[in-house]
Design a protein around this nucleic acid. Structure first.
Ligand SMILES: NC(=O)c1ccc[n+]([C@@H]2O[C@H](COP(=O)([O-])OP(=O)(O)OC[C@H]3O[C@@H](n4cnc5c(N)ncnc54)[C@H](O)[C@@H]3O)[C@@H](O)[C@H]2O)c1
Ligand SMILES: NC(=O)c1ccc[n+]([C@@H]2O[C@H](COP(=O)([O-])OP(=O)(O)OC[C@H]3O[C@@H](n4cnc5c(N)ncnc54)[C@H](O)[C@@H]3O)[C@@H](O)[C@H]2O)c1
Lengths: 211, 211
DNA sequence: TCCATATTGTTAAAAATTTTACAAAAATTA
DNA sequence: TAATTTTTGTAAAATTTTTAACAATATGGA
């Protein structure tokens, strides 16, 4: 990969991966960009253009081998690497994430949760223990974890993000309503649910009648 | 508003709204696009361009009045309208959403949850009752609800989406891993958490070292 | 009141993204 | 085996989005 891949392309990759997974389940072993285009409601051209950022996975006159393309995109996305995670905040959202078993199937393993509330320490969620936040640095010294999900109020998330990156965390999945300020080599992926709901509200009130 | 506003602009609006809310809390009553640009890490030009899709809210030589701009963007986003919602699936995610009180502050009121599991019926989450799914149509006949959040597995979400739109729901906040097929006048806003995590994984494995 | 400064709204340019078009190559059919 | 069909990979065109530039206008101080 010579040049930097655009964000728009990366955002679409997991969706390709999902559709290829569905095709596999349906027992379909080859697909053309045109057929996939019909299912995914994107242009065939965009599919070919996107995939060719990473290599020529198809074959003229044949199309793409589903299993092969699924694997290749999986590799690009780092699926199957076994990537350990921790979750900060064992409240509703933190527990929902820790309980969701599909992440594990993709290699994302939640090893522990951390909460400031001492009453939660000692519990475990989906066999991942909940530790007091004070144990964070010790834990990260002893365990190979690069990804942390932040599921605590914005009043605390800035401070916690600082501690996480200081302790070696390289990627933050951020559910709090704050744009985290992290070192250059740390990835932040935001999930701002309230903003998603406002977008829905905008569309509901201004766009739906026009269609 | 003559022309259709681009999706990219709409996606940025809630973020402007969030920053303006923070400015209000800090007691700052005016701000220029350049100052806001510094805080938000976007270009001043983009801020002015975005806002001017909706009207000239600023004043030369002065900038923008924070309270006024906050209100205007709020109106654009439909905040303060009191929009009733229901949540389908009273599992971990559905409960996390129903318990989160900040939506209510913005006018998004969760009135009820529905679950296929009869054991959950009778419980309530944050004072919203959980009903059996079989009561869905009756409930929507008697209550003015346009927005539904879908927090159930993809195996059921297609079918439920059909029932929802048949019963008059106009916007779906979709947390399931399925691209819903809905009538043209129905809005779907997807929150695909797994895809967000895969994107993080991609960036962690291919981009972080390069920065 | 006048002048220097600040800052918007908007037009134009640049950059990025998406779509179109098609030659090259493989698969399928006759 | 040869001809026809399918379909990719990619170059070029079109479109969309972002950034830059600046005239118009308001502010605030002298
Ligand atoms: N639930 C949602 O729908 C939703 C929507 C949008 C954003 N969020 C964000 O996610 C956060 C968590 O949501 P939730 O529904 O799980 O809230 P919650 O109140 O159920 O859980 C928050 C948990 O974080 C813990 N906590 C607080 N400060 C901490 C700290 N410094 N370190 C470790 N743990 C700490 C609390 O003890 C609590 O257990 C919210 O504050 C918000 O920022 C949630
Ligand atoms: N929790 C996460 O982190 C996460 C991540 C990505 C996607 N999701 C999506 O959200 C869904 C819900 O996640 P969760 O963690 O809350 O799972 P969960 O198992 O805790 O809850 C699912 C709930 O949905 C109910 N349900 C099932 N079919 C139903 C139907 N037809 N109608 C009404 N209720 C029904 C179940 O009884 C259960 O209470 C997942 O299946 C998945 O599609 C969740």
């Amino acid at each position: 990969m010579a040049e930097k891949i655009s964000g728009a392309v990366i955002t679409r990759l997991p969706r390709y991966y999902r559709y290829l997974g569905e095709l596999l389940e349906e027992g379909i072993d080859r697909i053309s960009s045109r057929e996939l285009s019909g299912r995914m409601k994107v242009t065939a051209s965009q599919i070919r253009q996107d995939l060719n950022n990473f290599g020529g996975f198809g074959q003229q006159g044949y199309g793409y081998n589903v299993a092969n393309l699924y694997d290749e995109i999986g590799k690009i996305l780092g699926i199957g690497l076994t990537q350990n995670m921790i979750v900060i905040g064992a409240g509703h959202l933190g527990q929902a994430i820790a309980n969701y078993t599909n992440y594990g199937k993709r290699g994302f393993v939640i090893k522990a949760l951390f909460d400031i509330n001492p009453d939660l320490a000692g519990y475990s969620v989906n066999s991942a223990p909940v530790y007091p936040l004070s144990k964070l640095e010790d834990y990260l010294k002893e365990n190979d974890v690069k990804i942390a999900a932040i599921c605590i109020p914005k009043t605390h998330s800035g401070e916690v993000a600082k501690r996480l990156t200081a302790a070696g965390i390289k990627a933050i999945w951020n559910f709090s309503h704050l744009d985290l300020d992290v070192p250059d080599d740390v990835i932040v992926e935001n999930v701002h649910l309230s903003e998603s709901l406002m977008k829905l509200s905008y569309k509901l009130n201004y766009e739906s009648e026009k269609k």
